[in-house]
Design a protein around this nucleic acid. Structure first.
Lengths: 146, 146
DNA sequence: CCAAAACCCCATAGAATAAATAGGATAATC
DNA sequence: GATTATCCTATTTATTCTATGGGGTTTTGG
């Protein structure tokens, strides 16, 4: 399970991705996406620090997308908020931690199994860009109308 | 990330799967797999209640496999200890929970994306049987020797 | 029968993490 | 300079995870 923070972040990005040129107020995103305002504030700040968003303070300010939405993918967002994508700490590159229970990691079939799941998952999440999600949502909506 | 409890359970099952007819003492599994004894006790009890293991009390007793190791897969074990496999509560069948943030779940592209990841993951974990892991470990060990 | 061996079971402590909120500081506009 | 809006730190609250403690029950074997 990813954290709510991460899920909120993705929803916010998708929301903004629908109008990539617009400037958004925290309050508006909060209401549109049903995210607690103060919580969202911290999330947007994280996204800004990560370089995905830019912001402008004061009256007439707000948050805006800094990168192309085709360039931001879910793997990156999940890693930013929740760290490793792998199901076990010994099956990840960037957040690797050894496990005490198996003597030899190289021959541990449990690790091997979860490593394969991880690789497949990362591959899928990398292909899920914000732009892709925006498009997909539009498609799902028109499909439903019929 | 799966819980340590779940990871321990898998390791214990793989250990037992190497000698599927044997009766195992908690203490021996604990030492062989580096799992805190008391913690393991609770885990084995859970596995017993789930029908995967049997046990015999008293002197000469112990835990033993009740089902064919080719029949026990990681999806089942993970679900037993950690619940849903999906990364978001709205993308799971058995542990489904709606999310407040999206008005229409059917057209939510975030859910759609994680649903696909879930399906792929479940498929992979279902193919990872305890017997399969035991075999794999043997293979990895001989490969390393060379 | 009884003592040792081994699982059974409940309860809880301790730590870490997640989720949310509080309260003010800073910046920009009009 | 009042208003709007982001920026920042800290704290609270709740929950879950991990681990352990301390008996209770069953079975065997002498």
């Amino acid at each position: 399970m990813i954290s709510k923070k991460c899920k909120y972040a993705i929803h916010a990005l998708v929301h903004m991705g629908k109008n990539p040129e617009e400037k958004f107020l925290i309050k508006d995103i909060s209401e549109a996406c049903n995210i607690p305002k103060k919580f969202l504030e911290a999330i947007l700040l994280d996204l800004k620090r990560a370089g995905m968003l830019g912001s402008k303070q004061g009256k007439g300010g707000g948050y805006f997308l800094r990168r192309d939405t085709e360039d931001i993918n879910l793997a990156e967002v999940v890693r930013l908020f929740d760290g490793a994508i792998a199901a076990v700490p010994c099956a990840t590159h960037k957040f690797y931690e050894p496990c005490q229970e198996c003597e030899d990691e190289e021959t541990c079939s449990v690790r091997d199994a979860f490593l394969q799941v991880r690789n497949a998952t990362v591959e899928m999440l990398k292909n899920d860009t914000i732009a892709g999600l925006v498009k997909k949502e539009a498609k799902l909506k028109t499909r439903k109308k019929r």
